[in-house]
C-alpha cells in the first residue's frame, strides 16, 4: 500500500487542533496584495475542504496566480490570512517551519520544462525531495512507487527533463509534489502548456490521484473545460476580486455574474460570434 494512502479518508490527523473546523485544509480570508497602484488581489476569501477540489477561474491579470503564489508562500500578502491545515498562517522562519509548510502545500507550475532543473534527472529530483522530507526511508522503492503513480516507468527515471515530452515532464512535476505527501496541491495552469490530448491524460491522472490519496486541489486555470472536469467548487476572479463562487456544476450551468457568463460565452463553439463577445466585454 502506498504511503500516501495513509493520508486518505476523513480521519482527523493528530496535528489538527480539536474544536476547529477540521473539514477545511485551507482557509483564505480577506487576502490583499497590491503591486504599486495595481491591486492584484483584493479581498479574496475562500475555503478548500479536505480532499476537495476548488477551481479559481479568470483571465490573465485577474489575480489568480498571485493568489496561488501567496498560498504556497512565494509571495507575501499585504493583508489577510492564509490558514493552511492547523498552521497559524503567519510567516514563520526556520527550517522546521519551512518543511512543515512544504508538507501542507505543494505546487505544480505551468511550464514543466522551466520548473525542472535541466541538469537533474527524474530520479535525482525525487530522491532529493525524499531525502529532505523523509530521511531514513527506503527511497528507491518510494521513487518507483511515485513514478508508477504518475504513469512513468523505470526508463524515464534516469532521463533528463529535455529527453521527456511535455506531458511526461508535467508527470514528473506532479510526482515531485506528491513525494512530499502534501494535503493540498496547487496547480497553477498545470495543463495550459500541454496539447489537448495530453491535457486529458493529465486531468484523468489528477482525478485518479485525488481518489487514491484524498489530496485537495486548488486548480488555477483560465480554461472552463478544465474546471468542469476536475473541480467540485469554483470561484471566478476579475480584477483581483471574487465575482462569483459556488459549486462548479451550479456556476457553469447558471452563471449569475455577467463576467462569468462572458467567460462561458467566450469558449469557441458552433455558431460562436467573436464580435458579439467583444461587444459584451466592452459593455461589462
Amino acid at each position: 500500500m502506498p504511503d500516501t494512502l495513509r493520508e486518505a479518508g476523513d480521519a482527523p490527523r493528530p496535528d489538527t487542533p480539536g474544536g476547529r473546523d477540521s473539514a477545511a485544509v485551507l482557509e483564505v480570508d480577506g487576502l490583499c496584495r497590491a503591486f504599486g497602484e495595481v491591486k492584484a488581489v483584493d479581498d479574496v476569501s475562500f475555503t478548500l475542504a479536505r480532499g476537495g477540489s476548488l477551481g479559481i477561474v479568470g483571465e490573465s491579470g485577474s489575480g489568480k496566480t498571485t493568489t496561488a503564489r501567496i498560498v504556497v508562500g512565494l509571495e507575501r500578502a499585504d493583508a489577510g490570512r492564509v490558514r493552511v491545515g492547523g498552521g497559524s498562517g503567519g510567516p514563520q522562519r526556520g527550517r522546521a517551519a519551512r518543511l512543515a509548510r512544504a508538507r501542507e502545500v505543494q505546487m505544480v507550475f505551468q511550464d514543466p520544462f522551466l520548473s525542472l532543473d535541466p541538469r537533474t534527472t527524474v530520479e535525482a529530483v525525487l530522491r532529493e525531495t525524499l531525502r529532505l522530507h523523509f530521511p531514513g526511508r527506503d527511497h528507491p522503492a518510494r521513487i518507483a512507487e511515485l513514478l508508477d503513480q504518475v504513469g512513468l516507468g523505470a526508463r524515464e527515471a534516469s532521463a533528463l527533463p529535455r529527453q521527456l515530452s511535455g506531458g511526461q515532464r508535467q508527470r514528473v512535476a506532479i510526482a515531485r509534489a506528491l513525494a512530499v505527501e502534501p494535503r493540498i496541491l496547487v496547480l497553477d495552469e498545470a495543463v495550459a502548456a500541454l496539447d489537448v490530448s495530453v491535457q486529458a491524460q493529465i486531468l484523468n491522472l489528477l482525478a485518479d490521484i485525488r481518489k487514491q490519496t484524498g489530496i485537495a486541489y486548488l486548480f488555477i486555470t483560465h480554461d472552463l473545460g478544465v474546471v468542469r472536469c476536475v473541480t467540485d467548487d469554483v470561484i471566478v476572479m476579475r480584477h483581483g476580486r471574487v465575482v462569483e463562487a459556488g459549486s462548479t456544476a451550479g456556476v457553469l450551468a447558471d452563471p449569475r455574474h455577467p463576467y462569468t457568463r462572458l467567460l462561458l460565452d467566450s469558449v469557441p463553439r458552433p455558431g460562436w460570434d467573436p464580435k458579439h463577445i467583444a461587444a459584451a466585454r466592452r459593455a461589462l
Binding site: 512565494l74 505546487m107 507550475f109 522551466l114 532543473d117 535541466p118 541538469r119
Partner: peptide, 25 residues
C-alpha cells in the same frame, strides 16, 4: 527561473538551492 521557485516550494533552503542547482547550471 521557475525551477528555483519549485525547489523553494519543496522546502529546500536558499543555500541548498544556490549551491546544488544554481551553481552547477
Amino acid at each position: 527561473r521557475p525551477y528555483v521557485e519549485a525547489y523553494r516550494v519543496q522546502g529546500h533552503s536558499g543555500l541548498q538551492i544556490s549551491l546544488r542547482h544554481v551553481l552547477p547550471n
